[in-house]
Computed example of a mutant assay.
Amino acid sequence: MATATTHGARDHARAQAGTTVETMPRVPAPAGLTWSETVAGGNYTHRALARGTGLTLTDPAGDACAHLLLFATGRPWERLNVADTVKVLWNAYPGTGHLLLSDQGRVLASITASAAPADTMCGTSTLLRNTARYGDGSPQGHAPAGRELFKLAAAKHGLEPRDLGPSISFFQGVRVDPGTGRLEFTGSAGPGASVTLRAEMPLTVLVANTAHPIDPREDYVCTALEVEAAPGAPTAPGDPLWTATPEGERAFLNTADDLAARGIQ
């Protein structure tokens, strides 16, 4: 179909209606979901989610690496604080039942189910590092850096590069060697691994699906990531997660206090 004219370009564009590809958002989302998308390796996605939403990330092929940044929607100054998450929960390897805290001591999200390693130590890749290692770290290049993709996702929510703190990642594991203190890359949990987060306040989620920064493989390796979100209820005082630890209970109380003051149920 000729596209040299305006009419030809229009007809060509309209002929694409209904076309699907392997990695794309599904709009509208399937019944029961509010978000459904397959994110290609080396790509990103983002969404503002309602309080109580369950967000499930799945690694179908075994080589996805989901780097996450979380923000209280409309409040760029309140965001995921990885250091506080590790410090307050006494755990550098978050899993089922752990909380992801903001820098205000409140619960942004809880991990309700996880069969995937979480890395709180390495953050995501940078333009400089990927350019030195792979020859290109630009967003449109063959080895996009996670921070560069985060910048694009952030801009769509009025966020700036200065708003981007350290991220948490899922699916590619890292451990600290107890003898040397060095970081060891432990790799994937395998095809089909998943993690589910619950939004404990209105949440803006940025996701960069990029190769882990200390993945020792010579090539840039990152496969597709499945993202699904469904409506749900936030953690309530009667939930065992609320009182699982004194530190966690305090964080939930801080969250409830803030939401009540803003009229959010």
Results as ranks from 00 to 15, higher is better:
A251R: 02
S169D: 09
P76V: 07
S125D: 07
M1W: 09
L101M: 12
R10H: 10
G137F: 02
S125C: 11
L149A: 06
Q265R: 14
L197S: 06
A233L: 11
E247Q: 15
P28K: 15
Q16F: 13
T126I: 10
H7K: 13
G173M: 06
L55S: 03
D257Q: 15
L253Q: 14
G238C: 02
S169M: 06
A92N: 11
G105I: 05
R147T: 13
P191A: 15
A109M: 12
D177F: 06
H98I: 04
V227K: 01
R175P: 00
W35P: 00
E160W: 12
R133P: 05
D177R: 06
T3K: 08
E249D: 09
M201Q: 07
V207I: 15
Q172T: 09
A64T: 06
E226K: 13
G263M: 04
E247R: 12
T34K: 01
S114V: 07
A83S: 13
K156V: 12
H212T: 10
W242F: 09
P191G: 07
G192P: 07
L197D: 03
L241P: 02
L183S: 09
L128F: 11
T19C: 11
D257A: 15
P60W: 06
G41D: 07
D11S: 14
G248W: 01
R182V: 08
T186W: 09
L152I: 15
A64L: 05
T53R: 01
T20I: 11
G141Y: 05
L101I: 12
G32R: 10
M24P: 04
A189Y: 04
N130P: 00
A143N: 08
H67Y: 07
D136Y: 00
A155F: 09
A236H: 10
N209Y: 02
L80S: 06
A61G: 08
T204D: 03
P28D: 13
R175W: 01
Y134S: 03
A154P: 03
V207A: 04
A224V: 08
T245L: 10
R250D: 06
D215E: 11
V86H: 03
A233S: 12
P246C: 09
G54V: 00
T45N: 08
C222F: 00
P161C: 09
A92M: 12
P178D: 09
D163W: 00
T85N: 00
A118T: 14
G173R: 02
T34R: 02
L99D: 01
P30S: 12
W90F: 09
A64F: 02
T58E: 12
K156D: 14
E200I: 02
E200P: 04
